[in-house]
Simulated scan of single mutants.
Amino acid sequence: MKRLAIFDFDGTLFDSIHDVLICFNKALAIHDFPPLTREEFIPCLGGNIGEIVALVLKDNNTPQNVEEVKRTYLDLYYSSDKELTVPFPKAHGLLRKLQDDGVILAINSNRLSDSLEHFVSRFFSDIDFVMVEGHNLVDPSKPHPCGVQKIIKKAKVLPEDAVYIGDSTTDIATAENAGIDCIIVKWGYGNEKDWQNEYILESVDDMCEIPKYF
């Protein structure tokens, strides 16, 4: 029986790629770089914002270019309405069921912490997360286990009592580095060829299967 469920954010709880890609392509255009399709952009996801920009820019990822595109993107993103960023169907119901069953809930993401707090308060205000741990520019980002270790300490559980729920190889590595089990969801932005020996959920409809893990 698991006592703590640590969720990734983008691609696991929230469908967020549409707003992110729109702002990224606007930032790239401002700096005279070509736009990306959704299929080109998805493999760049998983790291923190600086790492994502570096992958997006490919051979043009000089420190100056990365910093300029990152700054422009963040300005555009934070000033946008982000109306296309919404929870996946059944995500809220799943969290409510786990919470009602006494499972401790947390979020660990490479998204900046203030952005996480915005969406959590907007859509999940009735969910009592023990911690919402995003990238804070001080601590190392995923797949470093720092965020997970903070959450486990705050929840006052043992690593074997925790499970990480995500959609990517970054999430798998994060769980491995923290020494906890992992559940991978296929409705996000991960790459199926990299998922091996993991507990897999095929579709959003399978969210109801997660409580069986507890």
Score class of each variant (00 low, 15 high):
Val66His: 00
Thr72His: 06
Gly93Leu: 08
Gly46Asp: 03
Val53Phe: 00
Asn61Gln: 01
Asn108Lys: 11
Ile104Ser: 15
Asn61Pro: 00
Asp101Glu: 12
Ile104Val: 15
Val66Met: 00
Asn136Ser: 05
Gly93Asp: 14
Phe88Thr: 09
Leu116Val: 08
Val138Phe: 09
Leu98Pro: 03
Pro63Arg: 02
Asp100Gln: 13
Leu94His: 06
Ala106Arg: 09
Ile52Pro: 01
Gln99Trp: 11
Pro140Ser: 11
Pro143Gln: 06
Asp100Glu: 14
Phe124Asp: 02
Ala54Gly: 06
Phe88Pro: 07
Asn60Glu: 15
Tyr73Leu: 07
Val138Trp: 05
Ala91His: 07
Leu95Glu: 07
Asn108Cys: 15
Val56Lys: 00
His118Tyr: 14
Lys58Trp: 02
Ile49Asn: 02
Glu68Thr: 13
Asn48Val: 07
Gly46Ala: 07
Glu68Arg: 13
Lys82Pro: 04
Ile127Glu: 02
Ile127Lys: 03
Tyr77Phe: 13
Phe123Cys: 11
Leu84Phe: 07
Val53Trp: 00
Asp100Ile: 07
Pro140Trp: 06
Leu76Arg: 05
Ser141Tyr: 00
Gln99Pro: 10
Tyr77Gln: 02
Ile52Tyr: 01
Ala106Glu: 06
Leu137Pro: 01
Lys70Val: 01
Asp126Val: 04
Asn136Trp: 05
Lys142Glu: 02
Thr62Ile: 04
Asn61Gly: 00
Pro89Glu: 12
Ser80Thr: 06
Ser80Ile: 04
His92Gly: 15
Val130Phe: 01
Ser115Asn: 11
Gln64Asp: 03
Ser109Thr: 14
Lys58Ile: 02
Lys90Thr: 08
Ser125Glu: 10
Ile49Glu: 07
Asp126Ala: 05
Pro143Phe: 01
Leu95Ser: 11
Ile107Met: 14
Lys90Arg: 12
Asn136Arg: 07
Asp59Val: 03
Leu112Thr: 09
Pro140His: 07
Asn136Thr: 08
Leu116Phe: 05
Leu94Arg: 04
Gly46Val: 03
Leu84Tyr: 04
Glu68Pro: 02
Arg122Tyr: 13
Val86Glu: 12
Ser125Tyr: 12
Ser125Met: 06
Ser121Trp: 04
His144Ala: 08
Leu55Asp: 03
Val103Arg: 11
Ser79Gln: 14
Asp128Tyr: 11
Arg96Cys: 15
Phe88Ser: 11
Ile49Phe: 10
Gly102Asp: 13
His92Met: 13
Ala106Trp: 04
Val66Asp: 00
Asp101Thr: 05
Leu95Trp: 09
Arg111Gln: 14
Glu117Asn: 12
Asp139Asn: 09
Tyr73Ala: 04
Gly47Glu: 05
Phe124Pro: 01
Phe123Ser: 08
His118Asp: 10
